[in-house]
Amino acid sequence: MKMKKSMPDVIISIVVLIFLGTLFVQVPAIPEISRGFPLGLLIIATVMTLYLLIRNLLRLKNEEAVESKVLEQAKTIVPYCLMIIAYIWLMDKLGYIISTVVFMIVSLLFLRLKNKILMIILAVALTCLLYFVFTNFLGVVLPRGKWINIAF
């Protein structure tokens, strides 16, 4: 895939401007006494982002597109991100133990660890070790599932 060098900065600037816009919308609801500091920062941030956008838009005209590996890398990174999202979501539903064992096995499969026995032993052992250290030694109650609850 070919892409111009300044294109990512243009996209980032637009996303940041939208984000800053959502903050500007909330400013009138803030009492005047609490508004000054964030508003000042918001204005500076917006001016700087606009400058970055305009500078890169101007550069974009004179640039030639170069080969980029973004799509190729996204094929690995995007599914892995989805796996992490599923892991965090499942942790709330199935609890720490089940979700972590499942995530570790799926992650190791995805990353092509060949030894399947090691994979299962590792997933179970690390999950239990962390559970023991955090729960028994450090006194942290790890998430218990809303749907299923396995805890020792």
Binding site: I88, M104, S107, L108, T127, V140
Partner: peptide
Amino acid sequence: PKSILATTIVVLAVVGTYA
């Protein structure tokens, strides 16, 4: 191996943050 390290980092980051 990096495959195990990457998986462990994610789990540690998640559990550490929750803690």
